[in-house]
């Protein structure tokens, strides 16, 4: 499957292991990534907060670049991009005159976002693509090292599960359960804990550091109390607050933490037989010791087929 691939900014900046892991995992899943290397930052809601038309223009440009590829759809690996871009696309699709005005801003570059019911631009996070385009059975068939006995706490965050109407989450698309489903398809055990759908706190890290880290620390602590081996996130910004800032969060919530946090492509990659180091897991702030111990014991036990 060919996809127009939008990696976002943070996966190439502060969490380079995410972009790297996706590049390793894609060929194993027969996904061909056409990188949108001319596209710009989605704005992460901050540009929209400053000037909505500016954010909508930048994202319309990204959509137009994706429409110019022969990818079947557009794929991202960042929930924040998914959320910010879905919001812009909703506005662009809702009003022809507004869309025309935004496209005028792009005309100098010869680009235009086209709303075509026959060939709508579909923008999906890697998580959605796994479940909806590839299918869990196909994913299961590719598993070489099932995540047996690995207890994984899904951390969805916000942008990929809310608002439910805009993200079209319903009974036929239970997107708020997809991470549960993927963990199970990979052979792992889902850990239920209080923070599954809560906010990592990242958006206010520079404005109210204490509240931001209190959020991160609380969710990590809840996952520890529920006996998770690791967390998995579909968003690099969640990873920044839950992993990079975890030592600082531990001080705010006044308890020892030390919970490994994996990017979704890393978790998938492990089950597909890749080594933790190939997936950049040595680059995390919280050493994923429990996960690496698990993977070596699995390999030593010759469980990998």
């Amino acid at each position: 499957m060919k996809v127009a691939y939008w990696p976002g900014c943070v996966s190439r900046g502060f969490t380079p292991e995410l972009h790297g892991a996706m590049a390793k995992v894609a060929p194993l899943l027969d996904i061909e990534l056409i990188e949108l290397d001319r596209a710009a930052c989605c704005g992460a809601g901050v540009i929209a907060e400053h000037n909505q038309e500016l954010a909508d223009t930048l994202n319309a440009r990204t959509f137009a670049l994706a429409q110019n590829t022969d990818g079947a759809l557009m794929m991202n690996i960042c929930s924040t991009c998914q959320g910010a871009q879905s919001e812009c696309q909703e506005r662009l699709d809702a009003n022809t005159r507004y869309r025309e005005r935004i496209n005028q801003n792009l005309s100098e570059e010869g680009l235009s976002y086209v709303k075509d019911p026959a060939r709508p631009l579909t923008n999906k996070n890697f998580l959605w693509l796994l479940v909806e385009e590839m299918g869990l059975d196909a994913l299961k068939a590719k598993v070489r090292r099932p995540l047996t006995d690995l207890k994984v706490g899904p951390f969805y965050g916000c942008y990929i599960v809310r608002p439910v109407d805009r993200l079209r989450i319903d009974e036929s698309h239970p997107r708020d359960r997809y991470m549960h489903m993927v963990i199970e398809a990979l052979g792992g055990t889902v850990i239920d804990y209080a923070g599954i759908y809560k906010c990592c706190g990242f958006p206010i890290i520079t404005m109210n550091k204490n509240a931001s880290l209190a959020q991160a620390g609380r969710h990590v602590g809840d996952a520890i109390d529920a006996d998770a081996d690791c967390l998995v996130v579909p968003c690099p910004l969640c990873h920044l607050n839950l992993d990079l800032q975890q030592p600082a969060a531990a001080k705010v919530v006044r308890r020892e933490l030390g919970m490994p946090v994996l990017h979704l492509p890393q978790l998938v990659g492990l089950a597909l037989g890749l080594e933790p180091k190939e997936l950049g897991m040595n680059k995390h702030i919280v050493r994923p010791t429990s996960v690496i111990d698990w993977s070596t014991s699995v390999v030593a036990g010759a469980a990998a087929a």
Binding site: C158, Y159, R162, P163, K198, C199, P203, I204, N208
Partner: peptide
């Protein structure tokens, strides 16, 4: 500036 954009209030 204390709002974290979590969308819970919208839903």
């Amino acid at each position: 500036y204390d709002c974290t954009h979590c969308f819970n209030c919208i839903d």
